[in-house]
Design a protein around this nucleic acid. Structure first.
Length: 594
RNA sequence: GGUCCAGUAGCUCAGCUGGAUAGAGCAACAGCCUUCUAAGCUGUCGGUCGCAGGUUCGAAUCCUGCCUGGAUCACCA
């Protein structure tokens, strides 16, 4: 690897020329800025204390030594304290011929020995999936693929929150106002029907509360006293007592929801290796809490509720079990964490969950450690920001949620309209064009969401944000399609990729692309550390943009010098392969034609 | 009030283990299709990197304070 060669050579230079104690790891190399000549740059400022000479002179001496001693390096120049190094073109062409056929270039195929369980999606069963879930699912799936590309063994899991007061609300509403209605009869997805029930409950409850307030109760009281709420709570108790009628309805409605979710997941292209249900795990959580109590790690209040004292960690006390013995969110999460550890014994447990739960995961980790679970150290909360709309947050009550299915459908329609306008799909069958539009619209959606740093809140403007031009998924897909079409043309003209090392002269643009392809390996590794698909997205865009400029300026197949044409074709193919690989990690398919 | 996160071009976002003149896209304007796909390319316009200090050869990047926005501190999940 050329960067290690440079590091070692520079370190050696410092040792020989200045007798300074410098290890290769101390040398920070960066890509040379575009406006200067060179491939890599070493900044000598940090070493001036050792050299005791002016920056220019130090850099000059180090550079001279390196060129003398490292055969891969061609020449150097010095600007202020910056030592710019030019790598021999043969190195780059050698790199190309060695790697262009490798479909796994840049990704680590040998196991790293680290195993990871990653939870994402984690829906409630009372509402359809919305834009916020889309961000969650995309980040989760993508992070999982990025970790795989780093050689980790990855298990993707979903945790379905299928119990609790929210699902009782939907059930109650169904019994009261939707009795007899099914997704089949209504002709809608199951999750939508159950969501309608939930919305109806909320509406009825609101008016009930309003009525009570009018009768003179204060707001808080009214919310507690409302008969609908009491009925829902009663239902939850019956559910915990395993009342057969309630359980039957619960199962049926949940199954409707799962059918609906499955369709959404499939269209989004996300999947899971295992699915956990809170109804299966919350009892285990209770056991863990009991165990903590007997071990004296937790304490019981007079009313019988069980708590963890986290004041020594700078946090408050945290409730783990209610006085009536029913579990809370944290109880369940203790159980699921334990279960996941027992099932897979992973090195790392990742949770892709919104940043509004940062505190929750801090607490979860601390409580588990207090309970003697050393493996809790491996818990990482992959926290992501909210998706905001131009008019503020998404609020289900105000009807401003962007439904996942609707959004994908609209995107598809927009992609189709755009393609038609551009005359792109004229020679395609209906089936072919539909699958192409799907690829493009999902590419746009996924790229748009994944290109922003997960931890930041992001704005989603349905009208303006989803674009097919510029820094978008379709732009990258287009670049790939262009190259694939080039390959086809090349085959027609019997031009083959160049297996041997190219000996001709290379254009700056060509070297630029080769350098970018070379850096793919470290980009993948980076993304694996930062757990950020945005790293990959921005790389894919930069590469595609660089290639498009190259494509525009330099003729590839029309080049008369056959070796040159073959070299450029090879470079193009390698670019397409890396684009495909990077886009795969974002869950984005790339078409051969568009 | 405590804690955490964010604030970069009119808008959406990169850049943040300190390094050279802070980058893209969108929007606006001017060009480029007889030529390997114009969902493309080129150019112009656009910035006191929230504010104020500090650290040092050097700060968008690190530290402190402040301002603004968000999240959280629930016997909701």
């Amino acid at each position: 690897m050329i960067d290690t060669i440079i590091q070692e050579s520079a370190a050696k230079a410092f040792r020989k020329v200045y007798s300074a104690e410098v290890e290769s790891g101390d040398i920070i190399i960066q890509k040379t800025r575009r406006d200067f000549e060179g491939d890599f740059t070493i900044n000598v400022f940090p070493f001036l204390k050792l050299t005791r000479e002016k920056p220019e002179i130090s850099a000059e001496k180090i550079g001279a030594f390196m060129i003398e001693n490292a055969p891969e390096l061609e020449r150097f120049n010095v600007i202020k304290g910056f030592l710019n190094i030019v790598v021999k073109p043969e190195y780059w062409s050698g790199f190309l011929s060695k790697n262009f056929k490798d479909p796994d270039y840049g990704i680590r195929t040998e196991p790293s020995g680290t195993s990871v369980v990653i939870e994402y999606s984690s829906p409630n069963t009372n509402k359809p999936l919305h834009l916020g879930h889309i961000r969650n699912n995309l980040i989760g799936w993508s992070v999982a693929e990025i970790l795989k590309a780093n050689g980790h063994q990855v298990i993707k899991v979903n945790l379905i929150n299928d119990r609790g007061i929210h699902i009782c609300k939907s059930m109650l509403a169904w019994k009261k106002w939707f009795d007899g209605k099914t997704p089949e009869k209504e002709g809608i997805k199951g999750d939508k029907l159950v969501g309608d029930c939930y919305v109806r409950f909320d509406r009825e409850l609101k008016s009930e509360i309003a009525g009570l307030v009018q009768k003179g109760l204060d707001r808080e009281e009214a919310e507690k006293e409302a008969p609908l709420m009491a009925e829902a709570r009663k239902m939850l108790q019956d559910w915990e007592k395993e009342d057969p009628d309630i359980r039957g309805l619960w199962k049926q409605m949940n199954n409707w929801v799962y059918d609906g979710f499955d369709k959404t997941y499939e269209r989004l292209g996300v999947d899971f290796d295992n699915v956990y249900y809170e109804s299966d795990t919350y009892l285990l959580g209770k056991e863990i809490v009991e165990e903590g109590l007997t071990r004296g790690v937790l304490f019981k209040k007079d009313d019988g509720s069980i708590w963890a004292d986290l004041s020594d960690e700078g946090l408050d006390e945290k409730l783990l079990l209610r006085a009536d013995g029913t579990s809370v969110y944290m109880t369940q999460d203790l159980g699921t964490a334990q279960l996941r550890h027992d099932d897979y014994n992973p090195d790392k447990l990742l949770y892709v969950v919104g940043n509004e739960q940062n505190y929750h995961f801090d607490v979860l980790k601390i409580v588990l450690k207090k309970l003697g679970r050393d493996w809790a150290e491996g818990i990482t909360h992959v926290s992501y920001g909210m998706v905001e709309l131009p008019h503020g947050k998404m609020k289900s009550r105000e009807g401003t949620v962007v439904d996942a299915d609707d959004l994908m459908e609209e995107m598809h329609a927009t992609a189709a309209a755009m393609a038609k306008e551009l005359g792109k799909a004229d020679d395609l069958s209906d089936e072919e064009s539909s699958s192409l539009f799907e690829m493009i619209s999902l590419g746009a959606l996924k790229y748009f969401i994944l290109r922003v740093d997960p931890k930041k809140n992001m704005l989603f403007n349905p009208e303006e944000s989803i674009d097919f031009n510029g820094n978008t998924g379709p732009f990258i897909q287009y670049t790939h399609a262009r190259i694939r079409s080039l390959l086809k043309k090349a085959t027609d003209r019997s031009i083959k990729p160049l297996n041997e090392i190219f000996t001709g002269e290379m254009q700056p643009k060509e070297i630029e692309i080769l350098k970018m392809l070379y850096s793919y390996t470290s980009v993948v590794a980076d993304a694996g550390t930062t757990l950020s698909p945005a790293t990959i997205a921005s790389y894919a865009y930069d590469l595609a943009k660089e290639y498009n400029q190259f494509y525009q300026e330099i003729s590839i197949l029309k080049e008369e010098d056959l070796e040159k044409a073959r070299f450029r074709l090879t470079l193009s193919l390698f670019t397409a392969s890396v684009i495909r690989s990077a886009m795969f990690m974002l869950g984005i398919e790339v078409p051969d034609k568009m």
